[in-house]
Amino acid sequence: MNKKRTGEKIIYWLMRGVTYSVVLFIAYILLDILIHGLPAISWNFLTGFPEKSGAEGGILPAILGTLYLVIGTIVVALPLGMFSAVYLTEYSKQNRFAQSIRMAIVTLAGIPSIVFGLFGLGLFVITLNFGSSILAGSLTLACMILPTIIVASEEALKSVPKYMREGSLALGATKWETIYKNVLPYALPGMLTGAILGIGRAAGETAPILLTAAAFFLPDLPTSVFDQVMALPYHLYILATQHPEAQKILPMQYGTALVLLLLVIGLNMAAIILRIRVRKKYKW
């Protein structure tokens, strides 16, 4: 009996070891980038333009470029995703049409980001003639994060109990008034969680903007949505793999990686914290 218990303990510890080795790996990545990236970050680095094709100077245009892309993406994807979710949860019946929408969402969620890039290239850049631009990149990224936003919004809507709708309808509110005044306000924080996760994903993606929006070096900041932009992930990719003196400019690479990582993790953490607070606030 005792032997059996010891065996069991060993197995527990093995499982624990396996699980924590994943944690360790993550911690190692984060620390490695933090330790090597932190010294590279300075005021100049964050607010300056790249010099000597990125070997010196700063990454301001890349930071702003990513910001522009992300804003464009969310402006397009958030309302569409929210309305789409409202349709699915509040209006659609259990019919083939609704099922095809769900199937489409699952399909979209599984399409590789590079394929979105190809699609954006074919539709936005070439056919609609937006060229490689903020507009084309944002629209491409918006298509990509749409499923994330729809699914999160749906969940948020479903978490608002049925009696909120019945109670309002019974008071003579129309369906839309009910949704607008008595469902959406309570679902909104949950929807925002999805939006933030979507933003995090859009900010870190490289493959789609590679084909639709990004340039390695631009002397000026973009002035319209039809301009190309620099972007953090693409900048890091080029510095790390395409730069003739890649080995020598490691600090620049680490610095860029750290800024990108902080941005994306920051967004993810914000989403996680928001989610926890929402769950605490509304206990139905």
Partner: peptide, 19 residues
């Protein structure tokens, strides 16, 4: 239907005040 529901109020089994 909306005008009708205005004329007919309803109280549910589980009290359901809005938050």
């Amino acid at each position: 239907v909306v005008g009708l529901r205005k004329k007919v109020g309803m109280i549910f089994q589980k009290s359901n005040p809005f938050p």
